[in-house]
């Protein structure tokens, strides 16, 4: 484990901005550095969800395979974003597939490890939950705007 070198990386990532240094030290214990090559699969729909990723650079596409239509990208995440929340809730399985669109650097967080720390320290658990809730709300808003299909041409429908 490279605890001493990963903590500064976590501290500068927007997702953990302003986090209590003590909490940062705790979660650094669950982190490891990772990178993905272009087109590399990160996880697939239905796989066990045991981690999430803080993206440091590059781009990852969340996609879903639709019979007859191929892979349909529902969203991409880039530098400063966080990827994955299925590890938080049962049944701890990925809903979509993730694939690096280009070479991507990330810090992977072990979900099993984090869940244990959160159970042991509810203050940390609450802090983490608030941050994920903010991400979820932002994604939900974005999804709703996408659903509006604002660029669509309703006359041709």
């Amino acid at each position: 484990m490279k605890i001493e070198t990963l903590q500064p990386l976590l501290a500068v990532h927007p997702f953990f901005a302003g986090l209590d240094p003590e909490h940062l030290t705790i979660i650094t214990g669950c982190a490891h550095n990772t990178r993905f090559g272009a087109d590399q699969s990160i996880f697939a729909e239905g796989d066990p969800a045991n981690s999430f990723y803080l993206i440091r650079s590059g781009r990852i596409a969340l996609d879903v395979s639709i019979p007859g239509r191929g892979h349909h990208v529902v969203q991409t995440v880039e530098e400063g974003d966080v990827l994955g929340w299925s590890w938080l809730f049962p049944p701890h399985e990925w809903m979509f597939s993730a694939r690096a669109v280009e070479p991507t650097r990330a810090v992977a967080m072990n979900g099993t490890c984090l869940r244990e720390k959160c159970e042991a320290d509810p203050a940390l658990g609450y802090e983490l939950m608030k941050r994920f809730a903010a991400v979820m709300v932002e994604r939900l808003h974005a999804t709703r705007i996408q659903l509006l299909d604002v660029y669509g041409d309703k006359r041709n429908q």
Partner: peptide, 9 residues
């Protein structure tokens, strides 16, 4: 589709 390399969102 998967052949788009830019952002989706």
């Amino acid at each position: 589709a998967a052949d788009w390399y830019g952002p989706v969102g």
